[in-house]
């Protein structure tokens, strides 16, 4: 019982990342009808927002402390981060400590700007072209973004620790008499993902803007005929989708040290998630994200890997193939979306 619950919990954090990226992909696909292969790169850029901010916050100047000596007998050089000098040592230290959550504030405007730029600058010109062309041009863009990041940050993963307060392990099961040790940051990640997913759905369901967007997803032409500038709203939805993926990346940085190709790794899986969930179905994307995350974690148990070697590596693809062949529309796909 404990171990089953633990596997479910283990699946949740990866599942949350899949769900968030897949949600963004589906939003873009459902509104603009574009298959965005650069979405993984946006996730990666989000993670590098966290890296950048924590590096910027740690920028420091060197002072020479005459009173202390290092082991060679020279005056000790003390590095003081600018933040500590400005805000006092304690507040400064805690700002540096909380760099990852703080980078959400940085990531939101950056990602929205990036999303608007991508949509207006590039993807706008690809609505009328084939899906193959859309895939290819966004694939090219993903390579470019990835290589730029590689140029500035190097090819190695960069450790980005979470705040000290959220470091460590909590025993979730203590309340129920179970033994479930689980890293705190992963709980934070899951709650954060749930919050964002909830926010996106609430936005679409309960605001006028969301209503228009949903109407546009159902029948773009009619909404346009009613005198609504649907293109502009879809552009904003693209920015929101980019923002969702970016935030997913920011918060994922402490779980998995970011490197330049993490986006591509997640992208392939997220596409599979979207297809399993059903192209164009938002609840489907979220459901499939969590489902596949949990399934993957179950497949990684020693029991599963000794029974069928390598099952943890291929389970997601296997599920995708089976789903696509037996239920071509995916778990919750609607009729008429991306049918051939």
């Amino acid at each position: 019982m404990d171990s089953i619950l633990l596997q479910i919990l283990n699946g949740l954090d990866k599942g949350s990342a899949y769900a968030l990226i897949a949600l963004g992909l589906t939003l873009i696909f459902g509104t603009l009808g574009v298959v965005n292969f650069a979405h993984g790169a946006i996730f990666m850029l989000g993670a590098f927002c966290a890296v950048t901010l924590s590096k910027v916050l740690q920028l420091s100047f060197v002072t020479i402390d005459e009173t202390k000596k290092d082991f060679l007998g020279n005056p000790l050089k003390v590095e003081t981060p600018y933040v500590e000098a400005w805000f006092g040592p304690e507040i400064g230290a805690s700002i540096i400590d909380w760099a990852v959550p703080l980078s959400i504030l940085l990531a939101i405007p950056v990602m929205i700007a990036l999303g608007l730029l991508m949509e207006r600058g590039l993807i706008k010109h690809f609505y009328k072209r084939e899906h193959a062309d859309q895939i290819l041009v966004t694939f090219g863009l993903a390579i470019v973004l990835q290589e730029i990041v590689k140029y500035y940050f190097g090819a190695n993963p960069i450790q980005t620790p979470p705040p000290d307060a959220l470091l460590g392990v909590a025993n979730l099961g203590a309340w129920f008499g179970l033994d479930l040790p689980y890293p705190i940051w992963r709980i934070v990640y899951f709650c954060f993902a749930a919050l964002i997913i909830f926010a996106v759905f609430a936005f679409l369901q309960f605001t006028t803007f969301g209503m228009v967007v949903r109407a546009g997803m159902a029948d773009r032409e009619t909404v346009g005929l009613l005198g609504i500038n649907i293109d502009r709203r879809f552009t904003i939805m693209f920015a929101i989708a980019a923002c969702v993926a970016g935030l997913a990346g920011v918060m994922y940085a402490p779980i998995n040290p970011p490197n330049y190709h993490m986006g591509m790794d997640f992208l392939v899986l997220s596409f599979v998630v979207v297809v399993v969930g059903g192209m164009g179905s938002l609840p489907g994307a979220v459901l499939a994200g969590f489902l596949l995350g949990i399934l993957e974690s179950f497949a990684s148990t020693t029991w599963a890997t000794t029974t069928i070697p390598g099952i943890n590596q291929i389970i997601i693809y296997l599920v995708a193939i089976i789903v696509l062949l037996t239920r071509p529309r995916g778990l919750m796909g609607r009729k008429g979306v991306m049918e051939e």
């Binding site: 895939i135 392939v268 599979v272 390598g310 590596q313 693809y317 696509l324 991306m338």
Partner: peptide, 24 residues
């Protein structure tokens, strides 16, 4: 059995699966 984007994703999934198998 599928075409368009589904075909691309299916082939991608197969190839990644083979890569993962060959690698580990």
């Amino acid at each position: 059995r599928r075409s368009g984007i589904y075909f691309s994703i299916l082939t991608l999934a197969f190839a990644q699966m083979m890569f993962a198998l060959a690698y580990s």
